[in-house]
Structure formats: C-alpha cells, structure tokens
Design a binder for these strands. Structure first.
Length: 552
RNA sequence: GCGCCCGUAGCUCAGUAGGAUAGAGCAUUGGACUUCUAAUCCAACGGUCGGGGGUUCGAAUCCUCCCGGGCGCGCCA
C-alpha cells in the first residue's frame, strides 16, 4: 500500500471518531518541501465549517487521536501554517518498501481500482486507405499503454480497431487505384481531385498488373473499381497490421464496419431510436435529435440520397459495443474530431446510458521535425512520413516513449534526429540506461563472486542515507502514479515519473558505491535496493510498452 | 460569428480532485572518470505562471472579461 493510502486509512478511521466522513476533496500527498514531512493533508481546513472549530484545533484533535491509536509507522506529526497536518513516517516504514517490492515482483503497483469493470479501448482505427503515419503512431502508443495501465489497475480491458471499410473513402481508394492501373497501360485518365495521390497507390496498381495483367481493363469500370477497392484495402490493412505489430501494438479485435451494414444493424439501430421518438424526417433526410442531449444541433442519419451517414454507422457500432457488455467505452480520436464528441455522447445517452460511459481521448497533431526543420504531412497530398519510416529510423522504444511524454491533447514536437540521439534530450535512453546500469552491477557482482548471502529483511535497515530514503519514497510513489494515470486516462505522468526515478538512481550510482561499500551488510542492502529500483523501472517501462534492456 | 483546446525560464515541457518559497531537461557557464557503463553526475544562471478583475484562509489550477495561437463548426469520413 502506498504511503498516501496508509495515511488515508488512518485519517478515515480517525475522523469517524469525530463523527464525520473523509471529505471528498481531502488532499493527502507528499508536500513539496521536505520540512513539511512525508505526507501532508489539508483535512483540518476542510472540516472546519462542518465541525465548527478552527482548523488548528481540529488538527490538534486528529493528531492526538492518531498518536493514541496508530503509532506504528508514524514518527512525528506536525501541525503547521493554517492547519496542515504533516506526517513524518519512520525510516523502517520506508525501508520495508524494498521487501514489498521484491515480494510482489511484477504485481507491485497492481490495484483493484477498476473492480473488474469491463472497458473497451478503441484506438488507431485509421481508414484502410493508406499507410499509418506518425499521428496514428501516437494514438497507437497512447491506446496500447492505456490498456496496459487499466489492466494493471483491475479493469477488464479489451482493445479494438474499427475498420471503416464500407464508406465513400473506400470507393475513392478503388477509383484512385483503377486510374493508376489504367495509366500503367498508357491510358491518359487524370487522377481526380479527391483521389488518393500517394506513391503507394501506384504500387498497388502495379501489384494488380502483376497478378492479373490487363484483365481489369475488360471489366465494367464499376466492377473494376470495386475489385480495386477490395484489393487495395486488403493490402493496406495487412500493412497496417504489420506496422502495428512492429510497434508492439496488438489489438485483440478487428471490427469491420461492413459487418454492421451486412447485418442491417445500422437500420435496426435507427429503428430503435425512432421508437424512442428521437428520429424525424426533414427535407427528405432522416435526422437524430441529438440536440436533446446537449449537441448544438440535430444530425443526419440517412441522407436524402438514401445513403447512411458515417455517424449512423458509428452509433450502431457504439450500440454494438454496449450490447457486448462493456461498462466503459474509451475512444481515441484525432483532435480534429473534437467537434464530433457531443453528438457521439448524445447517441450514448439516447441509447440509455450515461454520457460518462463514453470517454474520448483526443490525440493532437505530431509536429514532425528533422534537425529542427518541419516535415509536412498529409495523406491526401501523398507527402507524409509513415509510421513505418519512423520506426525504421528511431525504433519502437524511442518512438513510444516520446509519444507518451506529453499530454495527448497537446501538440508534440517529434524530431527524428533527436530521437536517434543518445542524449538526455532523448529521455528514453536515460531511463533504459538506469535499468541497464543496474543489471551491469549485478553482472559485475557475479564476476567478483559477491554472493548475497543475507536476506533482505536482515539488511534493509542499513539503508539510512537521505538519498536512499528519498529513493524508497519515490519507489513507494509508483503505486500512486499508476492509479493517477488510470484515473485521468493518461500515461504521460508515468513517463515523467520514470525519468525522475532514473535520475535519482543515476545520482545514487555516482555518489554511493554499491559493491564497493565498506560492510557486507551495506553491500547487500544496496543490492536489494537496486533490485527494487530495477523492478519498478522495468514494470513502468512495460506499462509504456518500452523494453528494459539489460545491456546498452 | 459560435464551440473546443492551448498560453508556465531563451527553447521543449511537468505541475490532474485549489495548498505552504512554481519544477525538470535542453541551451549557457564552471566542475567530476587509474573506481559498479561519463548514454552519467555536481554547481551556477534563468519566471510579473499571456493580461485584468473575481471567488477564499490560500489560485498556475476554479469563475469572468480581454489579448495571442491551434482546431472544429457538411445530407464528408
């Protein structure tokens, strides 16, 4: 249990004696200043109005009660400023963290926050009309890491990729390929304005030519286009799957939009909304009363042409997700889709659920640089940097770590040159290096025939330096950080945490010899501390989907 | 015009249920390897948290107005 949770339990018990509950907004956290103790709380200030007493008086009462009843881990309690209660925990409490980490191993930091709640994380879901680019990579990194974190926090997580294989864009893909195909045979058809113009279209056309020769020229254009659509889409999807695999991103489900259409599920969903009185006809089209649920205006489900809108199939898709029994839907979208959130939430409400049951995480643009100079991207113009290229250049570890080093809804500068550099500007190496360095210490120990012949609980009380205690506190914090990441659905705090922990280790490494310590008990104690650090770094990196190398 | 996001050190950014003297890295300057990996460490320098008003014991954080930047406002996906 993290120190903050320990104190939380103690406070909960204590205020119950005063006849009140723990206030919802209570803060229990490590204060910025060391002199304010290990854990500080503002509880007395919050209870002042309820208990009709001054914060400092309340603080005094709480302090006395705690000292009477829970003195085990607590060395000292201070009351400071307007009524903060500052807890100083005993060294032995922090030292025992090593035991907890080593005993729990990979389960250290695991929690039951989610209580088995079923969550569907849907991410990437790029149209199979072109290769994945860097922006998709960012969404992939966030989605995959978030899924790992939520699983670790006791959610039952399923990951899914939604394939938009039924719409106009797919037809357009077929058309684009068909035109390129004809060009290969000397036809002078011009590529249309809204066509896909990337090189890969020509590659696909070439592939068709290789396999079928001129057979397609003899077909009706519409049939030929349909063939091209399917052929191109299959090929692109295969490439997308390969890219994601290389990025260590594995979706459990691949959900096809076409399957919804085939089962008439979209029409059935519209029918359901109609029964609820939320669908009406206007100007030859079918409208959904999304404005009844907070959207700016109503939205079209079926165009006057008779075609379904993308939104209609998206509602059906989300209904399908809910029907599959998920308690919480997490969608990861490009930030340019933010205007789409209110209508999707409206749909969730219309389906009888709370709007909180859909959480949308927006992924801002990746600003791709090469040596400080901007690289432009657009799938349409055909000039873009693919995820594949980035992975070939910088590798999955650096790419993932950089993608996860910012809040997902802020712009991210990604400099390909920097990502390859092995300096502090590229922090993935900093963290991985800490892990490798620890491994190297143990390799050296083996070389020198240093045998750790005492158990952790016999030596951990040798960890008495300020820096050692600080590291133990930092390790303890891991549990809180993981919980926060799960709560705010963002892995980036874990990335920062790992840099801090790695920094403390590097500092320690430079300052305190481990194998060269003067007593064998101290050598062993420091070895155990290093094992604990290594465990937490490895686990943290795992949650980010980054490797923890033993040698660098 | 309306809506959403953003504005913190020269640069890139943390600061996520409002807490005590606002933090990192880079850059700059100066130091540390015959010692467990120098892909490291130490020190110095650097801020009216875009601006004004408000809420309260307390605001980078919440409210409001203004300025500046990004994005979205389709019977597109």
């Amino acid at each position: 249990m993290s120190a903050t949770l320990v104190i939380r339990e103690i406070l909960k018990d204590t205020v119950s004696i005063l006849g009140v509950e723990l206030p919802k907004k209570v803060q229990i956290e490590p204060p910025r200043e060391k002199k304010f103790g290990d854990i500080a709380t503002n509880i007395a200030m919050l209870l002042a109005s309820t208990l009709k007493d001054s914060p400092r008086n309340i603080a005094k009462k709480i302090k006395d009660l705690i000292l009477e009843r829970h003195s085990t881990h607590i060395e000292k309690i201070d009351i400071a400023g307007p009524g903060f209660i500052n807890f100083f925990l005993s060294k032995s409490f922090w030292q025992s963290e090593v035991l907890k980490i080593l005993n729990k191993g990979e389960d250290y930091g695991r929690s039951d926050l989610g209580m088995g709640k079923k969550v569907l994380v849907e991410y990437v879901s790029a149209n199979p009309t072109g290769p994945l680019h860097v922006g998709h990579g960012r969404g992939a990194a966030v989605g995959d890491s978030l899924a790992r974190i939520l699983k670790f926090c006791g959610y039952e997580v399923t990951t899914e990729y939604y394939i938009n294989d039924a719409g106009r864009q797919i037809t357009l893909l077929g058309k684009s390929i068909y035109i390129r195909y004809k060009q290969l045979f000397g036809f002078e058809d011009e590529i249309c304005d809204d066509c896909y113009k990337g090189e890969y279209i020509i590659d696909i056309a070439n592939k068709i030519k290789q396999e079928l020769g001129d057979a397609l020229l003899k077909k009706e254009p519409n049939d030929a286009i349909q063939f091209c659509s399917q052929f191109g889409q299959d090929l692109i999807l295969e490439q997308i799957k390969q890219d994601l695999k290389n990025f260590r991103v594995l979706h459990e489900n691949w959900f096809s939009e076409k399957s919804l259409v085939a089962e008439n599920f979209v029409d059935k969903t519209i029918e359901l909304l109609k029964q609820k009185g939320l669908v009406y006809e206007k100007e030859g089209a079918l409208w959904f009363s999304s404005s009844k649920f907070g959207d700016d205006k109503d939205r079209v489900l079926k165009k006057s042409s008779g075609d379904l809108t993308y939104f209609a199939s998206d509602i059906a898709y989300h209904k399908d997700k809910l029907d599959r029994g998920f308690d919480l839907l997490i969608d990861i979208w490009g930030a340019d889709h933010h205007g789409y959130i209110p209508r999707m939430k409206a749909a969730i409400c219309a389906l009888g659920r709370d709007k909180q049951d859909l959480q949308v995480i927006l992924i801002q643009l990746v600003n791709l640089l090469r040596g400080g100079k901007q690289v432009s991207m657009s799938t349409r113009s055909g000039e873009f940097v693919t995820l594949e290229e980035v992975l070939n250049e910088v590798g999955p570890d650096a790419a993932r770590f950089i993608f996860l080093s910012r809040k997902s809804d802020s712009h991210l500068d990604f400099d390909l040159e920097l990502a390859k550099q092995r300096t502090m500007e590229n922090p993935v190496y900093y963290v991985q290096y800490a892990h490798a360095r620890i491994c190297s210490v143990f390799a050296k120990a083996k070389e020198r025939h240093i045998d750790i012949s005492m158990k952790p609980n016999e030596v951990i009380n040798y960890l008495t330096l300020d820096l050692e205690i600080d590291i133990l506190k930092k390790l303890n914090e891991f549990q809180d950080i993981v919980l926060t990441c799960a709560r705010i659905l963002s892995p980036h705090m874990l990335t920062f945490y790992l840099m801090e922990l790695a920094g403390m280790f590097h500092q320690y490494y430079n300052k305190c010899p481990v194998l060269g310590a003067e007593q064998k008990e101290l050598i062993f104690a420091r070895c155990y501390l290093l094992m604990a650090i290594r465990q937490v770094i490895a686990q943290g990196l795992y949650l980010l989907g980054v490797n923890a190398p033993e040698r660098m």
